[in-house]
Nucleic acid binder design. Structure first.
Lengths: 206, 206, 206, 206
DNA sequence: TATGAATGAGTTTTCATTCAT
DNA sequence: GATGAATGAAAACTCATTCAT
C-alpha cells in the first residue's frame, strides 16, 4: 500500500492547500469548484475527499495558511534592532505582498467569511492579538533601550501602526493613486510619527 | 391601480434593501438566495424583480447604502474648523459606527465582492478617492490657515489618516482589547501625529 | 358603457393582432411577452385578456392574418389575363414581400408551430390547397384560351410554380447571393418553363 | 473508470441527440426542457451537461444531424453523369426523405430558430450555398459536355431547381394531394424545364 | 488506493395568468 | 370596463458530494 506514510499524507494535504490557494487567488472561494482544486492538485475529486471532508474544510485550511507570511514578517520586525529601518522594511514588505494579484482578494474573502465561520474568526482574532503584541513588545524593548521616549504608550502605538499598515494594504490594490512613490510618502509620514514618539510625545488627550 | 404611488415604490425598495442587508449579514452574498430576500421582505420573487433587475443590483444597493454614513461623516469633517477637535470627532464617530453589529461584516462582504464585481469595485474606488481628497483638502485649508506646518505632505498625511482609521475600524470588531479606552489611546497617538505635523515635521527623511 | 358595440370590439381585436404581429416580426413568438403586446396595443394586460383567452390564441390569430396578403396576391394573379406578365408580377411581389424584415421569420415560426397546432395546420393546408387551385384554374383558363399548349398538366405546373416561389421566398432572406439581379435571373428561368409549356411541353416520363 | 471509452462517449452523444430530436418533434425547441431531454435519454441533467455545454448546443447538433442526409444526396447528384436520370433520382429521394414522419417538422423548427440563433443561421446559409454551388457546378459540367445548351444560366437554373425541390418538400407533408403520382407529375414538369434548357433556352427575355 | 461518472437539489431569472381595486 | 401589482411555476444551468468500478 502506497502512501500509508503519514508524512506523505501531510505532503498531500499541503499540495491540496497550495492548489486551492492558487485557485482562490484567481477566482475567489465561490467561483472555485472542487473540480478546479483537484485538477490543479493533480488528483481526482474522490481522492481529494479522502484528505478533506468538504470544500469548506479546504477553505479553512487555505485561510489558515494565508496569514502565515504576514505573521512571519511581523516576527522578523519584532526582532529588528533599529526601529526606523525595521519599521520601514516591515511596511514595505507588507505593502509589496499586498500587491500580489489576488492576495488582498483572498484576505478580504477570508475576512468576510470570518463573520460567519467561528473557526476563521478565532484564527483572525488570535493572529491580530499575537501580531499586535509582538509589535508592542518590540516597541517596549526599544523604549527600554532608550530609543523611544519613556512616556510613549507602546500598546496604543502598536495598535495604530498595525491598523495603518493594514489599511494601507487594503487601499493599495484599490487605489491607483497609491503607487510606489505615494507609498513611500505615506511610510515617511508614519516614520514622522515614530520620530515624534522618539523624542517627546506622550499620549495627550483633549 | 394599487401601488402607483412613488413614495410607496421608494418605501418598497428600501424594505427590500433592508431585508437583503439582513440576509447578507446572516449568510453572506453568495449563500443568500433571491428567494431568501423576497421571503424576508414579504413579497414574491417575481415582484421583487419588478423593483430590482438582478441580484447584483440588490447587492449594489445594499453596498451603496452601507457606505453612505461614512461618506457623510467625512463630509462633516472636511468642514470642521478645528483640526484636532474635528479629527477626534471623526475618528470617534467612525469607530462607533464600526461597532454597530453587522456593519463591519457588511463592509467586509462588499469589499470581498468588489474583487469580482466591477460595479462594486468602481464604487469603492470612487468612495475612497472622494473621501481621501476631502480629507486632504481639509488639511490643506488648515495648512493655509497656519494650523499645520507648511512643509507637511497633506495628501500623504490624509492617506495615512484614512488608512489608519479604516484599519482601526476593521480591528474594532475583531479585537476585544480594542475597547473604548484603548480606542481613545489610539486616537491620542494619531493626534500626536497631527501635533507633530502642526509644528515642524516635513515629510521626507532617512 | 363604452365599447359595448361589437364593431368596436372587432376593431380592438384587430388592433391587438396588429400589435402582436409587429412584436412577433421583431422578436418571434417566444421572446414576445404578453406585456409587450399589451403595451404596443396601448391597453393593459388585464384588458387584453378580455379579448383573447391566452397568448396562444393571439398567436393563432396573428398567424391566420399573416397569410392573408399572399392569398390576395394569388387571387390577383388568378385573374391576370397575360400569363407571362401576370406571373412575373406575382413572383416579384411575393419575393419583395419576402424581404420585409421578420416576415419570413414569422412564416417560419407559424410553419414550425403548425406541426403541433392542429388549427394552424388546417389553416396552412387550406391556404395551400386554395392557392394552388387558384393558380391551376388560372392556368387552365389560359390553356383554354390557347395561350398554353393543350398537353400541359396545369395542376402539376401550378404545383411546381408554387413550390418554386415558396422556395425562392424562403431562400431570399437566407442567401446574400439572391440579390435583386439574381432574383430576376431566377424568374427568367421560370418564365422559360412557361415558354416551353406555351409551345410543346407535355408531361413526359422516363 | 467506467466511461473513458471514446466510442461509448460518442454513442452517448448520439443517444442524447436522438432523444432531443424526438422531444423537439413532439414539443418544439422552446417547449422542450433540458430535463425532458435528459429524462428521455435516460440520464440526469447534470450528466447531460457533461456532453453538451448548453441547450443551444444540443439544438445545433440535432439540426446538423437533420440536414446531413440532404447534403449527402446533393453530393451524389453532383456526381451523376446523366442529367435527367440524376435529377429525377435526386428529386425522388429528397421527396421521399421529406415524407419521413417528423423530418419536415424538425427542419421547420430549425429554420424558424435560425432567425434568432446565429449559429443555426450560419449553418443554414452554408448548407444552402454549398448545395446550390454543387448543383450549379454539376450543371456547368453537363453544359461543357454538351448536354445542356450553352446559353443556359446554370447558377440561376440551380437556384430555381433548388428552390423548387425545397418548396415541394415543404408541401409534401402538408398537402394530401401531393401523393406519389402527383409528385411524379411535378418532377416531370421540372424535367421539362431541363429539356427546354437542353435545347435552346437562354436565360433572359421580356 | 484511486477514479470521474453520476446525481439532484439549488441557483437566478422570466412570464403567462389572475384579481383586488 | 380597466388597471397593473402580484403570483408561482417553470426554465437553464451549476456543483458539492458520492460510489460503482
Amino acid at each position: 500500500m502506497r502512501r500509508a506514510n503519514p508524512d506523505l499524507q501531510q505532503q498531500r494535504v499541503e499540495e491540496i492547500v497550495a492548489a486551492a490557494t492558487a485557485c482562490f487567488l484567481e477566482k475567489g472561494f465561490h467561483k472555485t469548484s472542487v473540480q478546479d482544486i483537484a485538477q490543479r492538485a493533480g488528483l481526482s475529486m474522490g481522492l481529494l475527499y479522502r484528505y478533506f471532508p468538504s470544500k469548506d474544510a479546504i477553505i479553512e485550511a487555505a485561510a489558515t495558511t494565508a496569514g502565515r507570511e504576514a505573521r512571519e514578517l511581523i516576527d522578523r520586525f519584532a526582532q529588528a534592532t533599529e526601529l526606523r529601518r525595521g519599521f520601514r522594511q516591515l511596511a514595505q514588505e507588507l505593502l509589496t505582498a499586498a500587491t500580489i494579484p489576488g492576495y488582498q482578494a483572498l484576505l478580504a474573502e477570508v475576512h468576510a467569511e470570518s463573520f460567519r465561520n467561528p473557526s476563521l474568526r478565532r484564527m483572525e482574532q488570535q493572529d491580530l492579538a499575537t501580531m499586535r503584541l509582538a509589535v508592542s513588545d518590540a516597541l517596549r524593548q526599544h523604549q527600554q533601550a532608550g530609543r523611544l521616549a519613556a512616556g510613549v504608550d507602546t500598546l496604543a502605538l502598536a495598535t495604530v501602526i498595525f491598523a495603518t499598515i493594514e489599511g494601507l494594504c487594503a487601499h493599495v490594490e484599490l487605489d491607483p493613486a497609491l503607487d510606489v512613490a505615494m507609498r513611500q510618502r505615506a511610510i515617511d509620514v508614519l516614520l514622522g510619527l515614530l520620530d515624534a514618539a522618539q523624542t517627546t510625545m506622550s499620549g495627550r488627550s483633549e
